[in-house]
Write a protein that binds this DNA or RNA. Structure first.
Lengths: 340, 340
DNA sequence: TTGAAAGCGCTAACAA
DNA sequence: TTGTTAGCGCTTTCAA
């Protein structure tokens, strides 16, 4: 492997000049630029990352900007992954500052303004509120600092990386899982249990994907769908009547345990239930057989990969993919433990 | 973060002495050992991996010892992963030598002898022939060089890492997948299509796990099992009669496409088929609906993680887990593309 | 048993 | 525009 010094020798210039060319710092004659570039090409120079970072001696500070995990297990998982990455990369000079926003637009805006003031080298961000996030990202992009989003994607913004699920496809997959138990007639319930505050439309995309599965499969005509929407605060509105004659239930988010709990309490059996995320409560109902399928979007891995993405880009100066869709994992009782 | 130089200053010794203590090179007075260790503890010293590797200036050579990929797509996947890792880590001084053995014990022994002669820093190995592999590993272990196994585990040998599936559990999972379509009476066919040469008993473990699923579920009594064994060379022995009255088929290895092909040709429909591995041919039949479930053991990732394991252990000198079981991925048509 | 110092390859500041 | 050089923190050799 050729070094800068060697290149300098061959080109008959100083290492400083070679360095300037490699880093496009300018202040070099075109003649030398060409000469050195030719040599680099010929010998396939790759800079020694150990030496580079040692000399560079830079600390990297990443900012993590996520919803606050108040009581919600869901947002703990990416944090776990982030912390794992943080430990792993701390020896490479990576440190992380955390900023959380509460689950409302006002809190988001307030914290977003703060984050915009921060001096950092990279940002990991979950864009829960779409419109606000777009405003924030538009502003943040001016800083020319790499951003990676997890959990939900804001496709409207360019030049920002995304690591997370393909929400539409995951709904499509859920459609297939529901269709496994098909009978003569199939009554499918879609229960949307959401927060008071409207967030990005991940769950709507899932439902869209869910329907498109049945549209794509003409042979599955005997499926009837009913949608129910319940605010998080009045889950008491669940009613045994809703489930009369129902064969399967699709819950397009992690609240599936609420429905499972209800069905178990009321001793309603034989309904196939499909939902999302490996929350402890969901796993309980998976283990005891109330829930059949969970679709896992690996939130922990999203967090880990998010930081790892910034690390690779900034510390190792590697090329990284802009979009990484997490594999859609089908989790049942028998493969849960192997999926960590 | 404290440095060796700083420690030396505080302890009133030279950096050389601190270095000797950190690396247990001996030749230091106990007094200094204690003094320095106390400081290290107090300040939480972690050595700068950039400086360390730069000064160490060592190249790492890993040996990959796998079955030859002659015509068998199966063994290409781990190679792909290995090559990806190889590229990624080449800038850290990692290089890889490949040694392949043909699918017979004699060839294995011959190559194993060669590998034993090699001078290397780490070994990635797939122990296909169990007894021969034990002999080989026993010998190789004397070199005190880290070994990581992929694909199948040899539990009899200690101090050797493993990255791969939990074969028994994967069979158990297959049991569940078969049980999804349960009817009044269920006739299940287990078709073992294997090479002429007997290899490690991965597929037998899978079958064992498969049966234990049904043993663990007493409610599934109306399942009848038939086993058929066919040598790879005479797949022509497949017979429509075999499938009469059969509801589902379990193929405990990647040869599921052979059965799928047969069923498709003979236009036999309505049989649930479960098998292993995302070979191109298997995917074809997954896509066209002949095959319902494939269990993926991510061979590519096994290769990648194998090299990454050695890299972390040797280059970064990190602690690494001895055993890593790959998640058991359930692959159906609708999540195949997201699983890469 | 210990210390001193060269050097790993790159960066960046300073001098020319 | 170009060259020189002092580090970055650790390893290792040589001398004491």
């Amino acid at each position: 492997m050729i070094t800068i010094k060697k290149i300098a020798e061959i080109a008959n210039v100083s290492p400083g000049t070679v360095d300037r060319i490699i880093h496009n710092r300018g202040q070099v004659s075109q003649e030398n630029v060409d000469k050195v570039n030719a040599i680099i090409k010929e010998f396939g120079f790759k800079k020694n990352i150990f030496a580079s970072n040692l000399a560079f001696n830079k600390k990297f500070n990443f900012v993590v900007f996520l919803p606050k995990n108040d009581g919600l297990e869901y947002w703990q998982a990416p944090l776990d992954g982030i912390e794992k990455a943080s430990e792993e990369f701390s020896r490479f000079g990576v440190s992380i500052d955390y900023h959380f926003y509460k689950y409302d637009s006002a809190s988001f805006k307030k914290m977003a303004a703060k984050v915009l003031e921060l001096d950092c080298d990279g940002l990991l961000f979950a864009p829960i509120f779409k419109e606000d996030s777009i405003l924030f990202l538009d502003e943040f992009k001016k800083k020319k600092i790499p951003v990676v989003m997890i959990d939900s994607n804001v496709k409207e913004i360019e030049g920002v990386s995304y690591i997370g699920q393909d929400a539409n496809q995951s709904g499509y997959l859920a459609g297939r899982l529901i269709s496994f138990g098909k009978k003569e007639e199939n009554k499918v319930l879609i229960i949307k249990i959401t927060r008071e505050i409207e967030n990005t439309s991940v769950y709507l995309q899932r439902i869209k994907g869910f329907y498109s599965f049945f549209e794509d499969h003409e042979e599955l005509t005997n499926f009837k769908f009913t949608e129910i929407k319940i605010k998080d605060s009045d889950v008491k509105k669940l009613d045994t009547k809703m489930f009369e004659g129902v064969d399967s239930v699709f819950i397009p988010n992690s609240r599936i345990h609420i429905v499972a709990q209800f069905l178990k309490e009321k001793n309603i059996k034989g309904i196939r239930i499909v939902g999302y995320d490996l929350l402890k409560k969901n796993i309980e109902f998976l283990e005891d057989g109330t829930v059949d399928f969970l679709i896992n979007q690996k939130p922990e891995e999203q967090g880990y990969r998010g930081i790892s993405h910034l690390y690779k880009k900034l510390v190792l100066k590697e090329e990284v993919e802009e979009i990484y869709y997490m594999p859609l994992e089908i989790i049942i009782k028998e493969n849960y433990s192997s999926s960590h």
